[in-house]
């Protein structure tokens, strides 16, 4: 009886972190989050499965949030799928995309298609808004990290632009 009591009391001590937490803690948007906060975020994520060649979202569709690849592969394309499409990126396990939609209510600038059986984790603007209301400190950390990601992207774009101009 005593053993069962102590076992129940400390049942979470030896517990390993969930698969979702293992994946999201490597995502720049969720870095600097402690174990408890990561668990909190993992409860908000939507687990979705996609077949090969299934659209995650189309270009110009309203964007509601970002996706993290738990398993499988996704390609990001611009242009029409029928012919003159251009693959911008091929993403795999642990990569993320669509994070701009967390900040603005705008249409998608590119399409995302699953190239394999894929499991994606969705994190959406409405969930981020609720998180900011319920746990402002955690919401602020995520927003700060999101700003850093956007800044890094902007800096890289600037560098590419400068490089292109100097090449001319």
């Amino acid at each position: 009886m005593k053993n069962a009591y102590w076992t129940n009391l400390f049942k979470n001590w030896g517990k390993t972190e969930s698969e979702t937490v293992t994946i999201i803690k490597k995502i720049p948007i969720f870095t600097e989050l402690n174990k408890k906060e990561l668990n909190e975020v993992s409860k908000l994520l939507h687990d979705r499965t996609y077949k090969p060649e299934e659209y995650v979202f189309k270009r110009h569709a309203p964007g509601e949030g970002m996706f993290i690849i738990q398993s499988g592969a996704v390609k990001i394309i611009v242009g029409e799928t029928s012919g003159n499409s251009q693959v911008l990126a091929e993403l795999s396990n642990g990569d993320f995309f669509g994070e701009m939609a967390l900040l603005e209510d705008e249409v998608r600038s590119a399409a995302a298609i699953a190239t394999d059986h894929s499991r994606l984790l969705g994190f959406f603007r409405s969930d981020l808004q609720i998180l900011i209301e319920r746990k402002p400190a955690l919401g602020n950390k995520i927003l700060q990290n999101l700003s850093k990601v956007v800044c890094t992207r902007l800096r890289k774009t600037n560098e590419l632009l400068i490089q292109e101009q100097s090449d001319k």
């Binding site: 939507h46 979705r48 569709a61 509601e64």
Partner: peptide, 18 residues
């Protein structure tokens, strides 16, 4: 709410959330 939302098909998922 999250457990209800998971039944929305992929195609309409983002629109459904909105």
């Amino acid at each position: 709410k999250k457990s209800l939302v998971q039944f929305i098909p992929n195609k309409y998922f983002e629109m459904g959330l909105r």
